[in-house]
Write a protein that binds this DNA or RNA. Sequence first.
DNA 1: AGTATTTGACCGGC
DNA 2: GCCGGTCAAATACT
Length: 351
Amino acid sequence: MDSGKSWEQKSLVNEIIEGMELAKQLRLCLNAKSSADTKQFLVQRILSSYEKALLMLKCGGSPQSPIRAIASAPESLMSANEGPCCVDNNRSLQDHQDLTAVSKKRKEMAKWTEHVTRVISENGIEGPHEDGHSWRKYGQKDILGAKYPRSYYRCTYLFTQKCRARKKVQRSDEDPTVFEITYEGKHTCSHGGSSVPPPPSPEKQERKRHNHNNTYQQQQSQGNQMSFPTNLRVNTENLDDRENTASPFSFTSSPFGSISVDAFLSSMLDDKSLFDHFNQSLLSPAAGGSNYYFELPSQMRNIAGNEQRSESDIISANNSSTNSPIPDMDFSLEPVELDSYFPFDCPGFFL
DNA sequence: AGTATTTGACCGGC
DNA sequence: GCCGGTCAAATACT
């Protein structure tokens, strides 16, 4: 553990040093007559570097450091190690395993909270994020003082695999686009990205119910789905809710899983023109300095999913590696969050 | 028909 | 008694 910590500190220092170096380069560029692209590139590299450093501080820093803006306090069992920290692949899984192994009472199970911001779609309906596991709703309760009811979910495989993971989903009163998700217990099921296609998740079905006649038709009516940006949904709201950003460029989707841009892009680089389009679209001036939530168009989904499917099928694809060309890759191609500081125009990054 | 969701009832902690 | 959490019958969906 100590070695891991010192490694983190080294990485942190490295990131900061890199940021400084890049800033120096930028200064030189400003004095010289460098191209705007170069400057832009340097700026984004700098921001990316500091972003990473900040994330390291948040996630791996001192035990006293704020893990994230979770603090739905009663989770008394949540220690600095136990929380979700960043929503990344390694997300404290080991820690919950240790904790849940210690105590079997549900009340004492590891518990942590995520705040998940979601885009409100055109028809005003959205649900909390897919997290790579399949859940079954077993209850809903109006909570005193809360504007929205709280939903209770358990793992679909509670009985078949005795997976005792549960989660509570509470929509934020202040910001309805924010869902506070309290996870309880670790998944012992093997379906976090298994080859067995799980049933559709509750959030998805909720949306499906609401959108029953809307969403798919909307997607269809959006016309040129072969053109990536036409279906690109950008939300620059809720910029403060950055805690879910696992790394300066990762597709955060699951408490236990995310996909790096490398893996994701390598799967889509076959379609170079599509990627170029994607790349350019995110280089537009409007793209600067914001969080991005974008919904992958069906074309891109198909790249990952191999086949054309209905929206509900597409959404559930994140639970099933069967449909994914990337084995055991547990990621969602639902609306995902991109780090605003990611240097999309970094020529060497994607190659 | 099988599976998932809804929702009122019930239970336990405070 | 209140409230959060869970159960389970009814209902909806595929």
